[in-house]
């Protein structure tokens, strides 16, 4: 594998994420289609048709092609560790014209948009250094509408798990149709303010329908999903049974005085792709 090969595969991964929704999300939407009626059903129908058109025509499923967000598990002995950031940045620039992507990076002070989806701290990369020579790159194009609905609550620890439930449900319900429901909700608990939000977002990498390995957390995920869907907000906020497709929780130990709850919201277009570079240099796009 050469750096150029990896760049090519990353461009392919971005194209795939933007045009082919993962199967777990599609099947969750298909289930929603079965149980919805009236205007809610019309919304899900349009989403499913849109997914099909996007897959067939290669046009991005949503005009908001997002901020390209990467989570990397890199082996400490991965040979391109030092070059990876530049390779990713070049891939994003190329994808901007080749997919194409909407120019989505704006300097907050000058208003200038370089037009190629890169900029200060963007693409945004989270690094985990692990043992070995392999490297796994998870990609999540994150749209603005759902990102605007992310929230942090530094709950008083005395409110306990009941407080956590209420904060998550009330927040998602208050979002109404704005994050393009049915959403996938990532809840990061503990750590500090920043870590809770990061854990929430990272939990979105998990497939829809896959539960947390700890049974009591898995149970809480299911309970929150049920409560959110009892609200009646529904697909696109037009009323219905499916406000969220899933709730994922990740946690870290907390300070005794803090109970941070970081809520990351992902729209129905829960776009993801993974690039894996194996020990023998093979590059796979999953």
């Amino acid at each position: 594998m050469s750096p150029k090969d990896l760049e090519d595969r990353l461009v392919l991964a971005i194209k795939r994420a933007e045009t082919q929704l993962p199967d777990d999300v599609v099947s969750a939407l298909e289930k929603a289609h079965e149980i919805e009626e009236g205007s809610a059903k019309v919304q899900i129908e349009a989403i499913l048709l849109n997914i099909k058109v996007s897959r067939e025509t290669g046009a991005p499923m949503c005009q908001d092609t997002g901020i390209q967000t990467f989570f990397i598990e890199a082996g400490a002995d991965f040979p391109y560790l030092g070059k990876l950031e530049n390779i990713i940045t070049d891939a994003v620039k190329r994808a901007s014209s080749e997919v194409p992507l909407r120019p989505n990076t704006v300097n907050p002070f000058t208003g200038k948009n370089p037009g190629n989806n890169v900029g200060r701290y963007v693409p945004y990369i989270t690094w985990d250094i692990v043992k070995g020579e392999e490297c796994t790159i998870h990609l999540m194009p994150k749209g603005g509408g759902s990102e605007n609905m992310c929230a942090l609550n530094m709950m008083s620890p005395g409110r306990g798990i009941k407080g956590l439930k209420r904060i998550v449900v009330d927040h998602i319900v208050s979002c109404e149709g704005k994050p393009c429901p049915p959403t996938v909700v990532g809840v990061g608990v503990g750590g500090g303010a920043d870590l809770s939000l990061k854990l929430g977002k990272r939990s979105l990498l998990r497939d829809v329908g896959i539960r947390h390995p700890e049974p009591h957390i898995a149970e809480l995920e299911e309970e929150l999903l049920e409560l959110i869907n009892e609200s009646g907000v529904g697909p696109m906020g037009v009323g219905g049974k499916t406000t969220a497709l899933d709730v994922h929780i990740e946690y870290a130990h907390r300070h005794p005085a803090s109970f941070p709850i970081g809520i990351a919201v992902q729209c129905w277009a829960d776009r993801r792709a993974t690039v894996k570079i194996t020990k023998d240099g093979r590059v796979e796009v999953i």
Binding site: T57, G145, W268
Partner: peptide
């Protein structure tokens, strides 16, 4: 009238 959020490819068609 409400059009399904994110249904960008369908709209383009």
């Amino acid at each position: 009238v409400h059009y399904t959020g994110g249904a960008g490819a369908l709209a383009a068609k």
